[in-house]
Structures are given as structure tokens and as C-alpha cells.
Write a protein that binds this DNA or RNA. Structure first.
Lengths: 123, 123
DNA sequence: GTTATGATTAACCATCGAGTTAATTAACTA
DNA sequence: TAGTTAATTAACTCGATGGTTAATCATAAC
């Protein structure tokens, strides 16, 4: 069985599952309610499977009440993934700075020699 | 073809690929150098494939120099993924607060009625 | 021109992932 | 007891992934 980080990222690598997390961010829901928006696109067992993936990654927990299964978001698992990515924050901030510098240079050059070709426009 | 976010998360869902990103965070490397730590575990074509996945996700870019391929980390793609997760930051911070409160309560209760059973220990 | 190096492509295989339909379990309801 | 609702499990299909070995391509070096 894969490590937690791999399970988490794999769980997030599907738009249906990400949509489920978005839904659960606004509160608990049982399986049929959660499945509602997807039933035009896929069957209920498919939803059950997606939920299993999210559970295995620790992103969702189910609690039973009679025949209902209440699904709850467990955001701590997301934190672990973000923490891993944070090690690169410095890198992307630096590269965004470089982009900013580049754009400033372009702008300065344009201001110095403003010769826009026909058919092109500013902003 | 899947959306960018799915490609990014899928690319991150593999420990080999994550290790490659960690390596590239400390600077560019050509394919054979990058492959070095993995060649006991897998073949060079396997590494090439992993690199393709990272490229497709926009996490890595290759530039050719003679017969060498220099691989560079493109951290902006990571930022997009982190941005998506950030929408849950409030949730996990709240839930960590709740955990903190709970632990405080336990601690308080213990202090009020300190009756640890034999075989158990503090902290 | 031939050989060596760096890297990719081709062809193949096994496993996994996402979906299906049909059957089943579990609990409530009449 | 029979029927309904909520959800899961079973069994299957199909395409994607991750790996292999062998062959190929591109450039450099002799």
C-alpha cells in the first residue's frame, strides 16, 4: 500500500473527487445527497468508490446513522499535502518575481520606444 | 485529456516523481544525473517516462544541449495546486484548534482528578 | 567512418483505476 | 411480513500507468 502523501495526491487527481471535497467543505452530507450532482454523469456505486478513495486518503470520514452514512471533510490530511508543497514556495515566489521584473522591463522598453504595430492594442 | 489540476496532482502522486522534484529544487540536472538515485530500482526508460509525466503537468521543462537534456523545475505549476488547497486552510486550522482545545480539556481534567492507572504514564 | 554517450521510442506485460449492471445488506415503514 | 430506501459489494470491461528489454536517434569523440 502506498504512502499517505501518494494516497492524498492520487485522491485529489480526480475532478469528481475534488468537487465532492468542495461540497463537503460547506457541511456534512450523506451519500445520496453528495451523489446528487453526479448522478447524471455516473452511477451511485461509482460515487461510493470515489468516497472510498477519499476515505483511504483520510480526507473524508463516514459515520453511520441508521441506513444513512454521514460524510465529513477531514481537512488535516490536506494540510500534510500542502506542507509538502510549501517547501517549494520560495521557488515559485522567486520565479514570479522574475516574471514581474521581466514585465517591468518590457513596459519600460515600450515607454521608451512606443511603436505599437497596427492592429495591436494596449492592455 | 484531463485538466491541469488533475495532471498536477496525478504527477505528485508518485514517490519517485516527488523525489525527482526534490532533487530539481536544488538545481537543474540532465536525465542521467537525475536518474542516478533510481537506477538500482528501475531502468532509464522508466525515468524518461516519469519525466514525461512531470513535463505534461508543467512541473518540469527540458532544454536540449547537444545530446544532453537539462531538466528544470517549474514551480509555478505547484503554486496552482497549493492555491486550490488553500481554500481549505481555514478548515484545517479550525480543526487543529478544536484538537488543541480538546487536549487542553483532557489536561485540565487530569490535573483536577489525577488518577493514572498502573502501567500508564504521563505525556 | 566508427564507436561511445545520452536519451528516447517501440513493443510488450501486469496491475490499477474508473466505470458499468446486477445482486445484496441493512434499516425503516406500512 | 412485505416493501422501500440507503448504500455497498460482486463481477466484469476497458483504458491508463508503471515497469521491462531491445532497438533507434542524435551528437560527440576518436
Amino acid at each position: 500500500m502506498p504512502d499517505t502523501l501518494s494516497l492524498t495526491f492520487a485522491a485529489l487527481a480526480d475532478p469528481t473527487r475534488r468537487a465532492m471535497l468542495v461540497r463537503l467543505a460547506s457541511g456534512k452530507a450523506n451519500v445520496t445527497d453528495l451523489a446528487k450532482p453526479f448522478l447524471k454523469r455516473m452511477s451511485l456505486p461509482a460515487v461510493t468508490k470515489h468516497l472510498k478513495v477519499l476515505e483511504r486518503a483520510g480526507l473524508v470520514a463516514k459515520t453511520a446513522d441508521a441506513q444513512f452514512r454521514s460524510c465529513e471533510l477531514k481537512p488535516e490530511a490536506l494540510k500534510v499535502a500542502v506542507d509538502w508543497m510549501e517547501q517549494y514556495r520560495a521557488h515559485w515566489e522567486e520565479s514570479l518575481d522574475r516574471l514581474g521584473d521581466y514585465l517591468d522591463q518590457v513596459k519600460a522598453k515600450k515607454a521608451g520606444a512606443p511603436k505599437p504595430k497596427k492592429g495591436q492594442h494596449e492592455s
